[in-house]
């Protein structure tokens, strides 16, 4: 699966994307977040408070209980500030 990070989350993690294999026990975005937090202290800090993290699955806004598959593009970003 393709993981994307934007804005402050991208800066905290220090990369804009990474490709990972979906572990068998990762079924939802929430499971994926728990998995990603184990990657590094920066991942842990950036994804610690999901109150401030927005999610998109395959370029559509999604909630933490959204199911994920190995071919998905999952993006994590802070609340948007365009306009």
């Amino acid at each position: 699966m393709q993981i994307l990070y934007f804005a402050s989350i991208r800066e905290q993690i220090g990369k804009s994307e990474e490709t990972i294999s979906k572990p068998d026990d990762v079924e939802t975005v929430a499971d994926l977040v728990a998995h990603l937090r184990s990657f590094s202290e920066d991942h842990h800090n950036a994804l610690e408070s999901m109150m401030f993290v927005r999610i998109a699955v395959n370029q559509v806004h999604a909630q933490a209980d959204h199911p994920v598959s190995d071919t998905d593009e999952i993006a994590f970003f802070p609340p948007v500030t365009g306009g």
């Binding site: 998109a56 970003f77 802070p78 948007v80 500030t81 365009g82």
Partner: peptide, 25 residues
Amino acid sequence: MDFLKTNAPFWKKETTSRGAKWVDA
């Protein structure tokens, strides 16, 4: 405009003489 402000995936970063800072939602 109301939906664009809350849903369109854009993020603003402001630069002043004191440095750069992401704009809070």
